[in-house]
């Protein structure tokens, strides 16, 4: 039982990270219609922003975290200008491949900057464990779950209780109508990219101490975030959360109880099954290809 509780909490923590990555992915998709195949590299950038600020620059962790997220927000804005704006009228295919190309650039830029040797990103709660039902839970894993819960609440408040968030939702629903309502569409789209980048950054900072900071970590995260998005329902925020938690839990529980070699296959098998049987996912929202 203690083993199960430990696995379950760790699975929730990993799932929370996937959920955050998936939420960033969904926000960008809803707002701009872009399926961001570089989403995993955003998370990797988040981890390395943490490495740069905490390990390399030696900042105390509150300052370091804030600086890392600020850097991610700036990166989101840069991505908006350099990648999104030039490709915004291109066909879906082109945009997909464009983000794949950017992902390659990001991964190899990190390789150039940090080398292929993995880094260790130390958690502020390093070494602390909590006893739950006889299971020793790492405080960091518990913090990941709590922080993700808080963030989900904040995102909900942003989208449903602030003028800014409602504007972002309006743009996501209908760009032309939003423009006619006098909203500054480009500013809201840029904010969506920045928000997605910050969320990916938080995911990266939380993930860093759980894995090693490795420049190749982006792809596996992206694949899990995609699986989470499909399972939960493309374009749905609750779906991204549920899907992320599901993928994280199957990964850890599956590795332990079924097969560690095939643990990743479970998530993809479920994803492909959903694509075939229920492509709108659990929290199915509208399915449509945007031009």
């Amino acid at each position: 039982m203690a083993d199960f509780i430990q696995l379950f909490i760790n699975g929730l923590a990993l799932g929370s990270v996937y959920a955050l990555a998936a939420i960033g992915f969904v926000i960008v998709y809803s707002a701009t219609g872009v399926v961001n195949f570089a989403a995993g590299q955003f998370v990797m950038f988040g981890t390395f922003a943490g490495v740069a600020m905490l390990a390399n620059a030696g900042l105390p962790w509150p300052v370091g975290y804030a600086a890392a997220l600020l850097a991610m927000a700036a990166f989101g804005a840069l991505f908006f200008i350099v990648v999104y704006l030039p490709l915004r009228t291109s066909p879906v295919v082109t945009v997909i491949i464009g983000t794949v190309a950017v992902g390659i650039v990001m991964q190899n830029a990190a390789l150039l900057g940090f080398g292929s040797w993995p880094f260790r990103l130390v958690s502020p709660l390093e070494g602390i464990t909590i006893d739950i039902g006889g299971a020793a839970i790492s405080a960091h894993a518990a913090m990941v779950v709590v922080v993700t819960g808080l963030l989900v609440g904040l995102i909900w408040l942003l989208f449903y209780r602030t003028a800014l968030g409602i504007g972002m939702r309006a743009v996501a629903q209908d760009v032309e109508a939003a423009r006619l309502m006098g909203l500054n569409v480009n500013r809201l789209l840029a904010l969506s990219w920045m928000l997605a980048a910050v969320l990916a950054g938080i995911a990266g900072l939380l993930l860093g101490p759980m894995w090693f900071a490795d420049v190749n970590m982006g792809d596996p995260i992206a694949l899990k975030a995609f699986a989470a998005t499909i399972i939960g329902g493309f374009g749905s925020l609750p779906g991204a959360i549920a899907g992320g938690l599901f993928v994280g839990l199957t990964e850890l529980l599956g590795a332990s109880y079924l097969s560690s070699a095939y643990k990743d296959l479970i998530a993809f098998a479920v994803m492909i099954l959903f694509l075939l049987v229920r492509p709108q996912g659990v929290f199915g929202e509208r399915i449509q290809d945007r031009g």
């Binding site: 399926v35 195949f37 879906v92 295919v93 997909i96 694949l223 995609f226 699986a227 499909i230 493309f234 070699a261 095939y262 990743d264 296959l265 993809f268 098998a269 994803m271 492909i272 694509l275 075939l276 492509p279 290809d289």
Partner: peptide, 28 residues
């Protein structure tokens, strides 16, 4: 037959998942 009912990014993600699954199976 089942896969090609999907379009656009859904097909891209499904085929990506297929390729990753292939690698996992061949590796293990």
């Amino acid at each position: 037959y089942p896969l090609l009912r999907l379009r656009g990014h859904y097909l891209a993600l499904a085929t990506l998942g297929l390729n990753v699954s292939f690698t996992i199976v061949v590796t293990n």
